[in-house]
Structure formats: structure tokens, C-alpha cells
Amino acid sequence: MRDEVQERIVEGIPTETYHEAEQILPFKHDTSRSTIASALLPHTTGEPRTYAVYVLECLQNGTGAATVLSQGVSTTSVSRYGDAGECRRVIYVGMAKRVLDRIDQHLNKPGGEGAYFTALYPPIRVLQVGWFNGKEQAQEAERLTADLLEEKFPADFIAYPG
């Protein structure tokens, strides 16, 4: 599984941060479902796999603590992830059966249905998506993706809910 995750996901992660990237940052100004779908389209394979492990790059300056606390994020989460913005890059690894819906939650329902981490550090672009056959396989791939990214990019902050 480790080799599969390395090949399907980790090798496709760009080394440059969103500050250095020449590509358009789709979520900077538009977090609509159509923009999310456009950002995910290059990561579709046509394979009959049902679960996705996705990798998002997030804004480093994040959202202010007062704002996310008002959205229901706990003070524990705020203090736990408070230093992430000091790293070279902030990356979030997640897993979902309906990846478009899940990224929509991260972008448009922070702290509620979205993750507390992405309420603090909103996603700015999709770095990679890997597809897997089942939930258990995707959960293992999510953990391995985070571990391999920590090895490959030690100056980056890697967050995942697993």
C-alpha cells in the first residue's frame, strides 16, 4: 500500500508553495461548487474506485481565532494548530466518498460540517487526489499519505484527521 500511495498521491504533489506557483488559485476568490469541480477535474481517472484521499494546500495566515471560535471551533483546536502558519506550507490530507461535497464543506461550512483545521487555515488549492476501492483502503491511504508527506516535506505542516 505504501508504494501505491507514493505513486498515486505523493509523487504528484508539487514542491512549490501557493506563493511560488504560477497557476491560478481557484479558491482564493470563488468557493462555489463549480469551481471545486473544476479544480477536481484534472484528478479524475475514470477508474471505478469509490473513495478519494485528497490533499489540500491551505492559507498560511489563516482565519483569526475570534472568527473561528464564533464558528464553533474549540479553543483546544485553535491552540493545537496555532503554529501551523509558521511552517513553509500548510497541507491538509482528508478522505471522502463524495470528495466534491467534502471539499465544499471545508470551504463553505468551516468548523461545522467542515474540519476545524480548515476553519483555521482555509484551503487555497487542491494538490492531489488518489482514488481507492473501499473505505478501509482509503483510511489507510490517508494515514500513509500524511506520513509520506511529512517525510518528503519536513518544513511543511501536515494535518489529517485520522
Rank of each mutant, 00 (worst) to 15 (best):
Arg2Trp: 03
Asp3Tyr: 05
Val5Cys: 01
Gln6Cys: 08
Glu7Leu: 13
Arg8His: 05
Val10Arg: 07
Val10Phe: 04
Glu11Trp: 08
Pro14Arg: 15
Thr17Lys: 08
Tyr18Ile: 11
Glu20Trp: 11
Glu20Tyr: 09
Ala21Asn: 07
Leu25Arg: 03
Leu25Met: 12
Pro26Tyr: 01
His29Glu: 14
Asp30Trp: 11
Thr31Phe: 03
Thr31Gly: 06
Arg33Tyr: 05
Ser34Ile: 08
Ile36Val: 13
Ala39Tyr: 01
Pro42Leu: 06
His43Glu: 04
His43Ile: 01
Thr45Tyr: 04
Glu47Trp: 08
Thr50Phe: 07
Tyr51Gly: 00
Tyr54His: 02
Leu56His: 09
Glu57Gln: 06
Glu57Gly: 01
Gln60Gly: 11
Gly64Tyr: 10
Ala65Asp: 05
Ala65Asn: 08
Thr67Asn: 02
Thr67Gly: 02
Ser70Asp: 08
Ser74Cys: 02
Thr76Met: 10
Ser79Phe: 09
Arg80Phe: 14
Arg80Glu: 12
Tyr81Arg: 06
Tyr81Val: 06
Tyr81Trp: 13
Tyr81Ile: 00
Ala84Tyr: 08
Gly85Trp: 05
Glu86Asp: 10
Cys87Glu: 09
Val93Cys: 07
Gly94His: 00
Met95Ile: 03
Lys97Arg: 11
Arg98Ile: 07
Arg98Thr: 11
Asp101Arg: 15
Arg102Asp: 01
His106Ile: 07
His106Lys: 10
His106Gln: 15
Gly112Thr: 07
Glu113Cys: 08
Tyr116Phe: 11
Phe117Arg: 07
Phe117Gly: 09
Ala119Arg: 08
Leu120Val: 03
Leu120Ala: 02
Ile124Ala: 13
Arg125Val: 03
Val126Glu: 01
Asn133Trp: 10
Gly134Phe: 05
Gln137Glu: 15
Ala138Ile: 05
Ala138Gly: 12
Glu140Asp: 14
Arg143His: 11
Thr145Val: 00
Asp147Phe: 12
Leu148Phe: 13
Glu150Val: 14
Glu150Gly: 13
Glu151Gly: 08
Glu151Cys: 14
Lys152Gln: 14
Asp156Trp: 13
Tyr160Ser: 12
Tyr160Met: 09
Pro161Ile: 02
Pro161Ala: 15
